[in-house]
């Protein structure tokens, strides 16, 4: 491996790690908003979904920078494969492995979402559940590997992210809306009476009418 090290690379690794953790926590929280049918009056449900999708893209960019700067910096011997294959790092094998597991799961969720239109929705949903494991693994990785994560503000940040993640998980589990949860009233057309076309359609679907 090319010997290349600079404190600035290490600073970048630390900073992007924190940013990625915050963003992925936000993505999971927003995903819970969408799944629990939040929105429809002051903010659109589709807007929360769009935020969920676009912030996840930003989070992935920060994660890529975090991983690249770790691999490029020869000061800590992690090895090129340690980002994807757990336990291959010579430096803190278990702690880095937690990050590798999180990255692999995030890759699975990302690729399945890119292929969303081409794969069965059921498969996409199954893979999307991995994001909870990914966030848990990332939180553990952050706490155990992070240079700043046991100091005052770093610890506070980790605790806030963990609390948001846990609250989202509990909310997701106990709310469990598997079917529709009422109408969304964001559009001014939402309260308008059904027009002729809509009535035609419902009549077409229900042969008894």
């Amino acid at each position: 491996m090319i010997a290349f090290t600079s404190p600035y690379i290490w600073y970048t690794t630390r900073a992007t790690g924190f940013v990625a953790l915050i963003l992925f926590t936000l993505v999971v929280a927003l995903g819970t908003f969408v799944a629990n049918r939040i929105g429809g009056t002051y903010v659109g449900r589709f807007e929360l979904n769009e935020l969920h999708r676009s912030i996840s893209m930003v989070a992935i960019v920060f994660l890529m920078v975090h991983i690249l700067t770790t691999l490029v910096d020869s000061y800590v011997p992690t090895g090129w494969f340690s980002a994807v294959i757990p336990l291959t790092s010579k430096y803190e094998p278990v702690h880095v492995a937690l990050g590798a597991v999180a990255f692999d799961l995030i890759l699975a969720v990302w690729v399945s979402s890119l292929l969303k239109a081409r794969i069965a929705n059921r498969s996409w949903r199954f893979i999307h559940w991995f994001s909870w494991l990914a966030l848990a693994s990332a939180l553990a990785h952050s706490f155990l590997t992070g240079t700043d994560s046991r100091s005052s503000w770093g610890l506070a940040l980790g605790v806030v992210c963990a609390a948001v993640a846990l609250a989202s998980a509990l909310w997701r589990y106990f709310a469990r809306p598997t079917r529709a949860a009422g109408r969304t009233a964001l559009s001014p057309l939402a309260v308008a009476p059904l027009d002729g076309d809509a009535r035609d359609e419902s009549a077409r679907r229900d042969p008894s009418r």
């Binding site: 449900r45 979904n49 529709a180 009422g182 109408r183 559009s187 057309l189 076309d197």
Partner: peptide, 23 residues
């Protein structure tokens, strides 16, 4: 209900939240 928010001219929502699409 996202379809109704994104295409209100084509999709109405019934009282349970399911779409009624312009036929």
């Amino acid at each position: 209900g996202h379809c109704h928010e994104l295409a209100p001219e084509l999709v109405q929502i019934d009282e349970w939240g399911y779409p009624i699409i312009k036929g």
